[in-house]
């Protein structure tokens, strides 16, 4: 029998610095480390979107940047553009997954206009490397958490080692919900 691969913990857990979509009291948490120019992340994006819809109220989703800049030269600029959009982050995040081949600076500024962010804000972020340190922290946390490719997912704080197809992720989320319910029931005093 093959040994079970390790499931490193998400470190640090989601916190105030993270982009989180969904309720704070969600029973299940899905976190992705990803790269906006990575074709696998583009494949995963509509799947995570549909999971967010199907598990609405139960799931919260977090995103951390892990740009593989040497093979994806536009990924870092895209991550900075997303950060520069502030409270429009999720809107921009979704636009960045429109097409991995359309992430030139001009494309990114066009996306910024679409979410009604002044392109100068994005240009200033690039020029000043405004989110460079944040992205570095994301990458460092990914390394500590055992990120070994993009995307890498974490479910309730543990690395998901299976595939990211819809069925596999759905099964893993349902299992995490069931485990949490069992753990909660075990904590209740007998009546």
């Amino acid at each position: 029998m093959r040994p079970e691969p390790p499931r490193p913990a998400l470190a640090p857990p989601l916190g105030p610095e993270d982009h989180i979509y969904g309720p704070a009291d969600a029973v299940v948490e899905l976190v992705a480390y990803g790269d906006y120019q990575c074709p696998h992340c583009h494949t995963a994006h509509p799947i995570t979107q549909s999971l967010i819809e199907e598990f609405a109220g139960q799931l919260r989703f977090g995103w951390r940047h892990f740009p593989l800049s040497k093979i994806h030269p536009d990924a870092r600029n895209a991550a900075m553009a997303a950060e520069a959009c502030g409270d429009k982050f999720w809107h921009m995040h979704n636009l960045l997954f429109t097409d991995p081949g359309k992430l030139s600076r001009e494309n990114l500024l066009q996306y910024a206009r679409q979410v009604q962010i002044d392109p100068q804000t994005v240009i200033a972020a690039w020029d000043e490397n405004r989110y460079g340190e944040l992205i570095r922290r994301h990458i460092a946390s990914g390394l500590r958490s055992g990120v070994n490719t993009t995307p890498t997912f974490y479910i309730n704080g543990r690395r998901h080692n299976g595939g990211f197809d819809k069925r596999t992720l759905t099964t893993a989320l349902l299992q995490a919900i069931a485990e949490k319910s069992t753990a909660s029931a075990g904590q209740n005093p007998p009546t």
Binding site: R2, P5, P8, L143, R144, S145, G146, V147, N148, N161
Partner: peptide, 13 residues
């Protein structure tokens, strides 16, 4: 590492 598992970089660091 198990041959099919990418061990990542955390152990090296």
């Amino acid at each position: 590492s198990p041959i099919e598992i990418n061990p990542g970089a955390d152990g090296i660091l």
